[in-house]
């Protein structure tokens, strides 16, 4: 199995797609090889700012802990994501602008924790053609909703309610919700994201298929309905995030047990989340779910 990199510099860095591609080998994807960490660190670029947030150690410590958890837990996948997403977010304390730089995620996946990416994303079953199971390339280098670390960070960013990461944990509990919703523009509206989570909490949505059906209905309905108007969010304020980032210097490592706290941003108005939760529940009741309504339909038709 791919091992922890031998060479871990003091600071995080940026790794361009072109360079990243050269390290994503068949050997790595199948977990048989390690990343040549010394060579890799020669092709990186420095981060534009030098502050405490980017001390590599802080992230690697989290990875070490989660690796341990992955081995210990019974349902490793969702539990690991639910544990790591808020903690990664609270450790890195990135702005969205910084988080939009794929080079940082490339570096995390290849330079800091290739062992984790392989452990987390290596399928347990062999390929259809009988080949050895391999990690999808996009887990190392890919868009924000597929890359191993970007997807966790963005889940935390889009599903947190101000400083409260609880909804993030819930969202991670339904991997299909994570995979489907994260790629849709509708979750850029906070009350929408929180209403989706609430339906999981209420156990209206239990399975992956249900999550997918709900997500498609919400996405389709959003083509004609402006959720932002029927369920207003509070106005964005840049200051809490700025303060939170500034406080990174003196912050102690995030708690391994209790949920960390995010920036002290205003929470989404409760009424807005309620309005959408009810509306989505109605949508879901109407939506065809694969496997759920087949019988009804065929008997009706």
């Amino acid at each position: 199995m791919t091992a922890r990199p031998e060479h871990l510099p003091e600071r995080l860095a940026l790794l361009a797609d072109m360079q990243a591609a050269t390290y994503i080998t068949e050997g790595l994807l199948t977990g048989r090889e390690d990343v040549p960490s010394i060579a890799l660190n020669k092709t990186t670029e420095e981060l534009p700012v030098d502050d405490a947030r980017f001390r590599l150690r802080r992230v690697r410590d989290l990875i070490d802990d989660v690796m341990y958890k992955v081995q210990a837990e019974e349902r490793p996948v969702t539990a690991a994501d639910a544990w790591l997403a808020p903690r990664l977010h609270a450790t890195l304390r990135l702005t969205r602008r910084e988080a939009a730089d794929a080079r940082l995620w490339n570096y995390l996946a290849l330079g800091v924790a290739p062992d984790y990416v392989v452990r987390r994303h290596l399928p347990t079953t062999p390929k259809k053609d009988g080949g050895a199971p391999s990690v999808a390339r996009a887990r190392f280098r890919g868009v924000h909703y597929t890359q191993a670390f970007a997807r966790l960070w963005w889940t935390a960013e889009l599903f947190r309610n101000g400083p409260d990461y609880t909804p993030v944990v819930v969202a991670c509990g339904n991997q299909d919700m994570l995979n489907t919703a994260l790629r849709m523009d509708v979750v850029d509206h906070r009350p929408t994201a929180l209403a989706l989570v609430r339906l999981i909490e209420r156990e209206v949505i239990r399975t992956g298929r249900e999550a997918n059906a709900l997500a498609s209905a919400v996405n389709a309905s959003a083509a004609t309905l402006m959720y932002d108007v029927v369920a207003q969010d509070s106005e964005r304020d840049a200051e809490p995030l700025r303060d939170w980032i500034a406080a990174a210097e003196g912050a102690s490592p995030v708690s391994r047990n209790a949920l960390p706290e995010g920036p002290e941003e205003e929470r989404a108005p409760e009424t807005s989340v309620d309005v959408l939760t009810d509306y989505f529940e109605g949508l879901f009741a109407d939506a065809p779910v694969r496997g759920r309504e087949v019988v009804e339909e065929s008997s009706a038709g």
Partner: peptide, 12 residues
């Protein structure tokens, strides 16, 4: 109608 993922009235 059986292939609609949502009711027609909901979207374009």
């Amino acid at each position: 109608v059986s292939t609609h993922t949502v009711r027609a009235a909901l979207t374009g």
